[in-house]
């Protein structure tokens, strides 16, 4: 548990060193980047690839230009996995790259193969060949590549999540562009926490969660006019007839947490001691919780762990949510 603060410190030292060695003008254009080691890629190609994926993902495959956010659901409408989908082409054919949590890449491969039947689709794990990088900038123009990466795109969820870049696994992104500075993966996680976005199987619980509670509609991850896909029925019905009372929201702890495991999944209570949700992710001072919106914005919230430590936190509606909600 001492590792995290140490990495943080190391990071700050690195940045300061960088500042010392560069003059001010280059510093302003400096872009932070990190390899997303917890993310993995599957390559999906073949003449039926688009039709095949269209039947499995929540988003419309035809809007994947060149990237989209989506989820894979089970027939009952619960989230199996959250994914990012990239469309790319090499010399002779178009193919899709499916970005997912590295812990479930085999599970997703099997999921796809289960529904493949006779479709002319090739599903290959390219985790060993390709890597996903993340870059964060103030101005997208400042990220100029001297060598073209395999693919670069804005994060399809939110602009504030920066850029996603795919390059061969054995290369470093700094070989591709100037003014890049390698930072720790944790920077990316912190950014996600501050925005209130969950990603990967430890935060998006397989088989339990509902896609709209994970803000799939706000993050442009679902289309309601695309036709049938696996798990469509519940999702469409909830959207058209129901109200979504619980959603993922960013939370801030009054004191930073150093024992993440003890808090993850704990119940969040509001100032009237009413159960208003669960903590889904956290990193230091920031976290994301799945909360009943009406109950959790009125005052301070609290979380208690199994060993009776209690911490105080506050929740807020993120700025990127639609104004009328």
């Amino acid at each position: 548990m001492q590792i995290l603060p140490r990495i943080f410190r190391q990071n700050i030292i690195n940045k300061n060193l960088y500042r010392l060695y560069t003059n001010k003008s280059t510093l302003q254009a400096c872009i932070e980047c990190a390899p997303l080691l917890e993310r993995s890629l599957l390559r999906i190609s073949g003449p039926d690839a688009a039709t095949f994926l269209q039947g499995l993902i929540t988003n419309d495959i035809n809007t994947t230009e060149p990237a989209s956010y989506a989820m894979l659901l089970n027939p009952k409408g619960r989230i199996l996995y959250d994914i990012l989908l990239y469309k790319n082409r090499n010399d002779d054919e178009e193919y899709y790259l499916l970005e997912c949590d590295v812990r479930v890449n085999t599970a997703i491969e099997n999921h796809c193969k289960f529904y493949k039947l006779r479709s002319k689709v090739d599903i290959v794990n390219v985790d060993q060949e390709l890597a996903v990088w993340w870059a964060k900038y103030n101005d997208r123009e400042s990220l100029a590549f001297k060598n073209e990466p395999i693919l670069r795109t804005k994060d399809p969820r939110l602009q504030k999540l920066g850029e996603r870049i795919i390059i061969p696994r054995h290369k470093n992104l700094s070989e591709y562009a100037q003014n890049l500075i390698n930072v720790n993966y944790q920077e990316y996680v912190d950014d996600r926490m501050k925005l209130g976005i969950c990603e990967g199987v430890s935060e998006v619980i397989t088989g339990e969660s509902l896609p709209l509670e994970y803000n799939l509609d706000y993050l442009d991850g679902v289309k309601f006019d695309k036709g049938c896909y696996l798990g469509q029925e519940l999702t469409a019905r909830t959207y058209h007839t129901g109200v979504i009372r619980k959603r993922l929201m960013p939370v801030i702890f009054l004191n930073p947490i150093d024992d993440n495991a003890a808090f993850l999944g704990s119940t969040v209570l509001n100032d009237k001691n009413k159960n208003c949700g669960k903590l889904r992710a956290l990193s230091g001072k920031y976290g994301v919780a799945l909360l009943r919106i009406a109950d959790s914005l009125s005052g301070l919230l609290s979380v208690k762990t199994t060993n009776n430590t209690e911490v105080t936190l506050t929740a807020s509606k993120p700025l990127w949510w639609p104004q009328n909600n």
């Binding site: 039947g55 499995l56 027939p75 529904y115 039947l117 006779r118 896909y229 696996l230 798990g231 029925e233």
Partner: peptide
Amino acid sequence: VVVTNGGCSGF
């Protein structure tokens, strides 16, 4: 008779 992928329930 053929079973294909598709629809809300997968097949």
